[in-house]
Design a protein around this nucleic acid. Sequence first.
RNA 1: GCCUUGGUGGUGGAACUGGUAGACACGCAGGACUUAAAAUCCUGUUUGCAGCAAUGCAAGUGCGGGUUCGAUUCCCGCCUGAGGCACCA
Length: 923
Amino acid sequence: MEYDFRKIEKERQRQWREQHAYRVSNNSNKPKYYVLDMFPYPSGAGLHVGHPLGYIASDIFSRFKRLQGFNVLHPMGYDAFGLPAEQYAIEHGVHPAISTDKNIDTFRKQLDNIGFCFDWEREIRTCQPNYYKWTQWIFLQLFNSFFNKHTQKATPIVELIASFAKEGNTLHVFPAAVNYQPAQFSADDWKGFSEKQQQEILMHYRLAFCGYGEVNWCEALGTVLANDEVVNGVSERGGHPVVKKKLRQWYLRITEYADRLLEGLERVEFSDSMKEMQTNWIGKSYGAEIDFEITGVPTTGQQLKVYTTRPDTIFGVDFMVIAPEHELINTITTAEQQTAVDEYCTYVKSRSERERQAEKKISGCFTGAYAINPFNGVKIPIWISEYVLAGYGTGAIMAVPCGDDRDFKFAQHFNIPITNILGDAFNGEEANATKDAKLHNSDFLNGVVMRDAITIVNQRLEQMGIGQSKVNFRMRDAAFSRQRYWGEPFPIQWKEGTAYPLAETELPLLLPEVDTYSPGPEGEGPLANIPEWVSKELETNTMPGYAGSSWYFLRYMDPHNDQTFCDRAVSDYWNQVDLYIGGTEHAVGHLLYSRMWTKALCDLGHIGFDEPFKRLLNQGMIQGSSRFVYRLKGTQEFVSYGLIKDFDTVDKLHVDVNMVDGIELDTAAFNKWKPDYAGANFQLEDGKYLCGSEVEKMSKSKFNTVNPDELVQKFGADTFRMYEMFLGPVEQSKPWDTKGIEGVHRFIKKLWRLFFDELKGRVWNEDAPNGAELKVLHKAIKKIQDDTERFSFNTAVSGFMICVNELADLKCYKRAILEPVLVLITPYAPHVAEALWEALGNTSSILDASFPVFDPAHVVESAKEYPVSINGKVRTNLLISLDATESTVQELVLANELVQKWVEGKPLKKFIFVKGRMINLVI
RNA sequence: GCCUUGGUGGUGGAACUGGUAGACACGCAGGACUUAAAAUCCUGUUUGCAGCAAUGCAAGUGCGGGUUCGAUUCCCGCCUGAGGCACCA
């Protein structure tokens, strides 16, 4: 009987489907375990081999936990709103719902091929009204809440209104990031405000709020562009100029949760690097805001507010730098500098924030104005430069060249004299950011260690009323609106410029049909093109992609509930996601947003936990190995890789990896590939056309994708699953290479042959196992259990191979050994395991078997072959009993002939014996 | 530019807390079975030097230093690949 994987896998999948083998109940006596994948965006390109990596890992872990007796929730769904579907709609006129459904069907077929244990009865799609109804509902919760600083919790806004009416805003001052005048008001003030004013004030407290923010604006296309759609300052489509434009936007007040987002990291099992990334993104810094008087300009009495983390360096300030968007530019620029400043600001406007930070070239412009150092009256020139960002701190810094690298380079570039406040710690060659030097040239701070000077300066500033210590966050409030069609509509209605929430009974606010997916007027989204929508004064923005993904893990628990987003009793049962698997590309976006939503929902009493993910595993990215051909500019001549150095101008073009064997191009296939290449002529080396290669993200546009369907068809799902795991550690990124898959396939066939011989048929028997066989089994149980638990799936696969190789060598065909081996392998290769399990005569599914229990008695060793080193070099091995004491071992070792030869009679300086490990002699 | 992360044979990788570097595979070479092929099985496979050979010696985990009896593992500096950087998902 042969291993017919196609038949086996089809049959098993049908059986599991019919038996609802993966249906999960919300009621169980078993302990619960929740394994979650980051759900996919169903792109039109379908799955490539990189996508299933994390799914296979989570599938293995889910099945493993199930065998260990847990009630495992392992759902899947689709993050279905997003830009690509809308782009496709613009280009092809196909409604995004239709193309999305089509893409989902493809995804589903591909996923099913691989044999995952998802409970598909819990599937969700973020674009469906019965799902986004609750996204809108949660948005309203955020809109109707504020962050109460005293309790550090989201609190219903009605409590804030009550407090305003009672004691003004003394109890609840404006959030730190808000700059509203008047900053304080009394109860009487509040009652005196108009409805519009009251709503305006409340908006500054709401957790979901409306404000103004900058977007990438493309005049030619009349639309707002994503960063992705902007390349080098022009639009990706058409290459039109893109500039910054201020538009009304919705935001989430995530900055209010900054401290709790930091604190929560201590209670979750994320990798240290992940925690570090989030910590850096939040970017909490302790510093001071300082007001400087401005002089040398027509309008007197103006002040420049800077934020600095190093107030101790105030005597080293040689110039000020403000962001090119800074408001003061209009009022402090002197007449002589006006032209230069205007030119500079226009130049900067076309540049992205990233470009501005990455730019090595130093640029800037003097405003003509000066600030006055409050401690010594020194006049400090005020410059504009793009390295200062408007969005961080106050958008203005005090530059201390001797202590800050960027300031130093700026000073050098513009020949600004540098004051040394560091004494010997500053060498004049480069800045020194130390906090431990003693201050020089610093008036009352001379001789004080910088670290200690920070508090002294802060105290002085506060006494003088010109500054205060301040905690700052790099993180900004999250932009929560898009000028797009394919997203959740906001349940918001505008009345005379004030936003009002729709009633819960009006949800879901359905996304209407449109005639055109083109942008609306004035940078508004396509919804602004619909007269009925506009006449009702409904919000025309839609929510961003991350809205639906910020809470989907809750919906899986209770996906069909139409009374609430998730029943509290159900979320109390499933609680946190025990294991969340996905890529690091979501490190700061999705993970922070969903953590914030969870905290807000918890604060408001809708769920009972405030961190969504207990443990996070980041699978690495499977990269594509791209191949390139080189075409002489303007010709049809293609030059082999080794020859390109002989030519000046060649175009480097991606070529489909499936036409390349190693790096050798199938030139005939290339000619047929695209009509353009039919007439291609090749300049060969050694009779071959060799391609260049590079490792890049796997993507259809780079022609480096490999389709899992073909591999499943050729080798089977079990082989495919194991091979993806065998490739390397899940957490590591690696380029895909199909080459090794045969090895895994051979392994499964070898496993099969322990049960069935091609000619003889059944070979397994009921004999009692011997010690050697039990040892192999229990070694494997331990290895597989340990490796699976620590997500070392690649070494677990190797463990299976070792186990099967050893059983084959022992000619062990005994049921008592083979049956537990099948259970071990079930999470990895479920189809073949179930088929052989049934062949052994079992009537219930192997999915519900019990994981074998490791018995150390079967694997004990009595002796160990110790490596014996002399001065750190291994010279021989000696078999020594594990019970031997150190002195016995030393005696044995020194008596050895080979050891004596290497020791050459020299005295022994040191004898190192690590029991069970090694022996080292130092002479 | 900033943040994170990787670099070990011809290839993917193993070595879990500083203790025999190269497990397990791929590929390659040789052999067995076969009319032949596929499949399967066996042997070898880090490099250099010496030897008919078993084997021996030396070097070796991106590069340069350091700590240690002992470093792929820890520390310092550098080179280099990948991912992210707020409207892609």
